[in-house]
């Protein structure tokens, strides 16, 4: 009976969505919208070659702060739910020699790649989130290879807190200096150069460190259970 009503519900929703889709494709041809204005204005106002980065950190910087906060909330809640690991629980057994050596070998390269992607987020596709995810993977792969040497949660939570604070402080600095929270600082510079787009690379660094430490902490904690 419940299966039957579930199927009916899904079919009804499907019909509704198809009607919406038809109207979106055939009738609504959107011209303009704020996207095209931002495409025009972003190069002069923010000065980052990657316009998605301008949207993410300048026009919608508060969303990014909120998103970092959601990640932090989830990490805190997971810490609350899973609790402290008791020291005498058994670890998974070590992986073989090849896997361990490969993990150690990969580590510096992944750190380098992550740092590169974070620092070039304002001029190439990439940025704090993507780079942060790579950094997290760099720290998590060795844990998978040898579970007995766990992540140092103290360090990761320190970086987490400080990076989040740094993001807010940059925003507050702009509030004091320019009158607007998270306003771009230090001018725009040459579009496409590494040192351009004002405070965007700094914000991305904070985002990258926070996402990296947070994801690494999350993965490690889930793996420790």
């Amino acid at each position: 009976m419940t299966v039957f009503s579930g199927v009916i519900f899904t079919i009804g929703l499907g019909v509704l969505l198809i009607a919406v889709m038809k109207s979106l494709i055939l009738e609504q041809v959107l011209t303009g919208g704020i996207g095209s204005i931002i495409l025009e204005q972003a190069p002069t106002e923010v000065g980052s070659a990657n316009i998605v980065s301008s949207v993410l950190l300048a026009y919608r910087g508060l969303d990014t702060l909120g998103e970092l906060t959601v990640l932090f909330v989830a990490a805190t809640a997971i810490g609350l739910v899973l609790g402290q690991r008791s020291p005498d629980t058994k670890h998974d057994s070590e992986a073989g020699f090849i896997l361990r050596s490969a993990a150690d070998l990969l580590f510096p390269f992944m750190i380098m790649l992550g740092a590169y992607i974070i620092l070039h987020g304002h001029i190439t596709p990439g940025g704090g989130f993507q780079g942060g995810a790579i950094l997290a993977a760099a720290f998590f792969i060795p844990i998978l290879a040898s579970p007995a040497s766990p992540l140092n949660h103290k360090v990761s939570s320190l970086i987490e807190g400080l990076a989040g604070t740094a993001f807010i402080l940059i925003g507050l600095f702009a509030l004091v200096g320019k009158g607007y929270f998270l306003a771009p600082l230090f001018g725009t510079g040459d579009i496409g150069a590494l040192f351009s787009a004002g405070s965007l690379p700094l914000l991305y660094l904070a985002v990258g460190l926070k996402v990296g430490s947070e994801l690494a902490g999350l993965l490690a904690r889930l793996q420790e259970v």
Partner: peptide
């Protein structure tokens, strides 16, 4: 913090982000 943003925000997507902060914290709590 999320609640304050949720009621003050005048942007739809920003409302979604703050709503998520409130929601995820309440799952945890």
């Amino acid at each position: 913090g999320g609640s304050c943003g949720l009621v003050l925000s005048g942007d739809l997507f920003n409302i979604y982000v703050f709503y998520e902060i409130v929601a995820v914290s309440s799952y945890g709590l």
